[in-house]
Write a protein that binds this DNA or RNA. Structure first.
Lengths: 98, 98
DNA sequence: ATAAATAGGTTTACATTATAAACCAAATTC
DNA sequence: GAATTTGGTTTATAATGTAAACCTATTTAT
């Protein structure tokens, strides 16, 4: 058993962690909302959403609201588990208080 | 005030965080000891020690024990502060329980 | 009607970073 | 004295992060 646990590289990145952090506390969130909450640029957010989706950590559904496109995101059970595991792993490095 | 704090890129890397994590709880640690505790390869450890030193987060002193070279590391006050700030910043992303 | 601006993204090019393999010098062991 | 071990450093390559540039459709202004 290594003393320091491996940190899931998908979550060990600030924007992806912020996105997951928002999604874990909300039913769903669209691109514009995530952009506002995280303060990210659209390009960066687009790329990181893709990666989270490819990892199976979030679901992405694209539809239209009126005539405007909307990209809607929700966290998956795997996403929740991955976040929990990430927090647990972090605690082998640092002690955090809630 | 952004909702998610910036994460010090120097500490947001597992090996550097592990090194600081060890050093914060120990008077000093040499290369061999850090290599054992972290499980890192020598090359990677050498590079990351350099970066922590350049950042002023650790002090590195090279001497000899008998005829053998020894690289000794200690954390600096800035290193301690940076770690504390990093933990605080992380808590804007996740709420952790000790 | 058409031009300009805005919305909602995606693609890409570039720079930075991380990592292990290769390397090196000195000391030790066979 | 040849081979191995110790204690590292240098480097080559791959992976990653990021913003600028771009794209399509819609709305607003002229």
């Amino acid at each position: 058993m290594p003393e320091f646990a491996e940190l899931d590289p998908l979550l060990h990145q600030s924007l992806r962690l912020a996105v997951i952090s928002v999604l874990v506390s909300v039913e769903s969130a669209d691109f514009v909302y995530l952009k506002e909450r995280t303060g990210a640029t659209a390009g960066n957010l687009s790329v990181q959403i893709d990666k989270l989706q490819e990892a199976g950590y979030i679901n992405v559904v694209k539809d239209f609201v009126g005539k405007r496109p909307r990209t809607n995101c929700t966290i998956t059970p795997q996403g929740r588990e991955a976040l929990a595991a990430y927090v647990t792993a972090l605690q082998t490095y640092i002690s955090l208080k809630s």
